[in-house]
Simulated assay, not measured.
Amino acid sequence: MSVLDRLFAERAASVRSGLSTAGAPDPGGAAGPGGLASFDGAAGPDGAAALDGAAGLGGLASFDGAASPGGLASFDGAAGPDGAADSGRQVTVMVVMRRLDLGDLVQGALEFTGGLSPEEADIWYRNWTRTRFLLGNPHNLLGSAAVRTVGPGGHLAWLGPVDVARPPGPSRLLKPVTGRLPELPPSVHLPGGRRGAPCEIRIACRGLTTAGYLIHLHHTLAEAVLLGRIDPRTPVRLVHVPDLDDGSALSSAYARVHYGADGALRLYTFLSRGERWTSRTET
Results as ranks from 00 to 15, higher is better:
142 L>M: 13
159 L>T: 03
140 N>W: 05
153 G>Q: 11
151 G>W: 05
159 L>M: 12
153 G>M: 12
151 G>T: 05
143 G>R: 15
164 V>Q: 13
147 V>Q: 12
145 A>R: 14
161 P>V: 09
170 P>S: 04
148 R>S: 08
158 W>Y: 09
160 G>P: 08
158 W>M: 05
143 G>D: 12
170 P>H: 01
164 V>L: 15
141 L>Q: 12
150 V>S: 08
161 P>G: 09
142 L>Q: 13
171 S>Y: 03
141 L>A: 14
163 D>V: 02
144 S>W: 01
156 L>Y: 11
171 S>I: 05
157 A>G: 15
151 G>A: 07
152 P>K: 10
142 L>P: 00
163 D>Q: 08
142 L>F: 10
170 P>Y: 01
162 V>C: 14
144 S>A: 03
157 A>K: 04
160 G>S: 11
157 A>D: 07
157 A>I: 12
148 R>M: 05
143 G>M: 05
171 S>P: 02
154 G>N: 07
160 G>H: 11
171 S>M: 03
148 R>K: 15
149 T>S: 12
169 G>C: 00
154 G>S: 05
144 S>P: 00
152 P>L: 15
146 A>G: 01
160 G>I: 06
170 P>Q: 04
160 G>Y: 11
149 T>R: 15
140 N>G: 07
141 L>H: 13
158 W>N: 07
165 A>K: 02
166 R>H: 12
149 T>M: 13
147 V>D: 09
144 S>N: 05
149 T>K: 13
150 V>W: 10
148 R>I: 01
143 G>K: 14
140 N>M: 04
166 R>L: 04
145 A>V: 11
171 S>C: 10
155 H>W: 00
150 V>N: 06
168 P>K: 02
171 S>V: 12
153 G>C: 14
158 W>T: 06
143 G>W: 03
148 R>P: 00
152 P>S: 14
153 G>V: 12
153 G>T: 12
157 A>V: 10
169 G>Y: 01
141 L>W: 11
168 P>F: 03
148 R>A: 09
148 R>L: 01
153 G>P: 13
148 R>G: 06
163 D>R: 06
161 P>M: 09
171 S>G: 04
151 G>F: 06
151 G>M: 09
159 L>W: 00
158 W>F: 09
154 G>D: 05
158 W>K: 05
140 N>P: 00
141 L>T: 13
161 P>I: 12
163 D>K: 04
163 D>L: 13
171 S>K: 02
155 H>I: 01
157 A>C: 10
168 P>L: 06
159 L>F: 02
142 L>V: 13
167 P>V: 02
140 N>Y: 05
141 L>M: 11
146 A>E: 06
147 V>Y: 10
163 D>C: 04
166 R>Y: 07
153 G>A: 13
145 A>L: 12
151 G>N: 09
152 P>E: 11
171 S>R: 03
157 A>W: 03
144 S>Q: 06
163 D>Y: 02
161 P>C: 11
141 L>R: 10
156 L>K: 12
152 P>V: 13
156 L>A: 14
146 A>R: 00
157 A>H: 07
148 R>F: 00
169 G>Q: 14
144 S>D: 15
165 A>D: 08
162 V>T: 14
166 R>K: 15
154 G>I: 07
159 L>E: 01
170 P>L: 05
145 A>H: 10
153 G>L: 13
168 P>D: 03
162 V>W: 02
151 G>K: 06
147 V>S: 13
